[in-house]
Design a protein around this nucleic acid. Structure first.
Lengths: 174, 174
DNA sequence: GCGTAGGTTCAAAAATTAATGAAAGTACGT
DNA sequence: ACGTACTTTCATTAATTTTTGAACCTACGC
């Protein structure tokens, strides 16, 4: 029992029912799920994005939940993730407080931002870490080969850190 | 009770004990674990690779197991993974049947092969999948905007598939 | 200002993924 | 050709990640 009306009538009122995904919608969802998997993004997030991506109009919370058959919590967290990554935007109809979601124009920019957030922190932590490894290895006695290996690793890390902004430039501020 | 000698003496004989990792070895392991995480490779595999990477000489199974404090199964599977990816090689001392493991000279080539094995299959599956989505969408009535979105997605996928071998060329056969 | 539509939080359950270790090969030195 | 040192397999267990859903906010239309 939830809504005031349901309290009065004393039974659950049938909720608006939603279409399950059509075959081609499912296929697009699978596609995004696969790509997301590579980047370590959970399936529910990919499904939400796919649904918004293939929809003509911006979609509301309840419809997303209904058509994908997932919990409120998942929809809320999925939308938060996509919003934080700048992958979706919302509009509001006037006179309603509900938000309607649609994908941002540039998927490319979105993916870049995702990759950045995954890779850059790792690269940045690595520079001092590798230096410490080199220091530690030099106090012990190690072979010139190992020393050279580690030095090369550090050079690569530095180069990657330099190249990264060129390949995947950060979003330019307004 | 395991070895014949232990059967005779009737008690477990103290196994050779192994040094735990030194601080700089731990730090290198952390580095590889972090990088591996991005690529969805489990921690145990990264740890094995780190140990081989920082070692002067090729290492044997038992020593890897002992120093990393992990199970036989994990060591076996980890070595298999690294071997299959072409990231490590083995040598044998004459008169012994045990294999000694060391990293292949080129870490770069190894990482490329890893990336290929993760990304390429996804890209390849995607081409026909996206075509099916386009077909499905056209039989339904959808907006020109959505159609354009999906067409763009497919073009990107094709381009990625073309570019991939250029960026990360497959290993050349001997 | 009140009531509630619309959304978030977060502890607990479910699902997925990784590690373990005993049993089962396998091939090598003798 | 035997015995066993060395390794792999794989069902089970443990760890981690994802999803759920009920309780809880919060701001807006009235």
């Amino acid at each position: 029992m939830k809504t005031p009306f349901e309290k009065i009538v004393g039974r659950r009122v049938s909720r608006p029912s939603f279409e399950p995904l059509a075959p081609h919608e499912l296929e697009l969802a699978d596609f995004f799920v696969r790509i997301a998997g590579i980047l370590g993004v959970p399936r529910s997030v990919a499904e939400i994005y796919a649904l918004l991506y293939i929809s003509i109009k911006p979609l509301e919370f309840d419809l997303i939940q209904g058509r994908l058959g997932m919990s409120k919590g998942s929809v809320s967290q999925g939308l938060k993730f996509l919003r934080d990554q700048g992958m979706i935007l919302s509009v509001k109809e006037k006179g309603s407080r509900r938000e309607l979601w649609h994908p941002t124009p540039s998927l490319a920019a979105s993916l870049v931002s995702l990759l950045r957030s995954q890779v850059l922190p790792a690269l940045e932590q690595s520079t001092p870490a590798l230096q410490r490894v080199l220091d530690g290895v030099q106090s012990n006695n190690t072979s010139p080969e190992v020393l050279e290996r580690l030095a090369r690793l550090k050079r690569w890390n530095s180069r990657a850190l330099e190249l990264f902004p060129l390949l995947l430039p950060p979003p330019t501020e307004a």
